[in-house]
């Protein structure tokens, strides 16, 4: 069985702030890591492979530095990986990102099962998985919290809904997005690191795709546009209390009492 896991490189911290005077974004350091939710997707693939065999590929889109997360996936046990990287992909919103990834998936060959993390920690939209499924014309199930059975032509999964749990059988090829906690992700292994140190990472750009129409990628392929960015609004109607702990406690107690949260 061919399993494809989609992974993304995200900033290591979320300490990005806007300087209120100049409007310039300030960022502490530029360290980055694999989106934590993708670790669960990769672990799910590894467990399926342990039981049923098959091959695990990983695919990412981003700047050339994003190769580091593909190496990390190799250290966890992925068999091969590719990166989609091109200046023409810059400024992509959800739609353009999903379309680019769907073209990349066609390029590396269709998988039976595509697994995505629930969402990323930088965009937090949880939308890219379903949009890719649409572009590939395959069914998807989101919020998968358990893999129940892998059959020859389908997979049975447990889907977490707000008030119910649904067990569904979904035919291959398909895409699932998995919840955190579906499996505990393993740590990258040093042995695998040595083994895979020279393993190739394929890099594809727009010229490698079937659809080379520049208007469908990056900023030009993005129906949504960022009009402006700004710091979150500040509540000016507030009281700031300072003092020693006894005074602070007294004030807090009195406030809770005034507001009737303490009888």
């Amino acid at each position: 069985m061919d399993i494809l896991v989609l992974i993304k490189q995200v900033p290591g911290t979320n300490k990005v702030e806007v300087d209120e005077k100049t409007g310039v974004l300030k960022r502490d350091g530029v360290d980055s890591k694999m989106n934590p939710y993708d670790l669960y997707a990769l672990e799910t693939a590894l467990r399926i492979k342990q039981n049923k065999g098959g091959k695990i590929s990983v695919l990412s889109m981003g700047p050339p530095q994003a190769e580091s997360i593909i190496k990390e996936a190799y250290m966890m046990g992925a068999d091969d990986g590719a990166l989609l990287s091109d200046r023409k992909f810059a400024g992509a919103d959800v739609l353009a990102t999903s379309y680019t990834l769907s073209q990349g998936i066609k390029k590396i060959g269709k998988a039976d099962l595509i697994i995505c993390g629930k969402q990323t920690t930088d965009g937090d939209t949880a939308q890219v998985g379903p949009e890719i499924a649409e572009f590939l014309g395959i069914p998807h199930v989101a919020n998968v919290r358990k893999i129940i059975e892998i059959k020859e032509k389908s997979i049975v999964v447990e889907m977490d809904m707000p008030e119910t749990v649904e067990i569904v059988d979904i035919k291959f090829p398909c895409l699932i997005t998995v919840e955190k906690d579906i499996f505990q992700p393993r740590l990258p292994s040093y042995k695998k690191k040595l083994e895979t140190k020279d393993r190739e990472i394929k890099v594809f750009s727009l010229k490698d795709f079937d659809d080379k129409n520049e208007k469908k990628y990056g900023l030009n392929g993005s129906p949504t546009q960022v009009e402006r960015i700004f710091p979150p609004s500040v509540n000016n109607d507030k009281e700031i209390w300072q003092g020693n702990s006894d005074e602070l406690t007294e004030k807090l107690y009195k406030k809770l009492k005034d507001l009737k949260f303490i009888q």
Binding site: D93, V94, S98, T125, A126, Q127, P130, E131, E134
Partner: peptide
């Protein structure tokens, strides 16, 4: 859960914009 699954699918079908949350 349903909306987050359905809205992106519809947006992609019409190749239009979707802004989450």
């Amino acid at each position: 859960t349903v909306g987050r699954s359905l809205a992106p699918r519809v947006a992609a079908r019409f190749r239009t914009g979707l802004t989450a949350d």
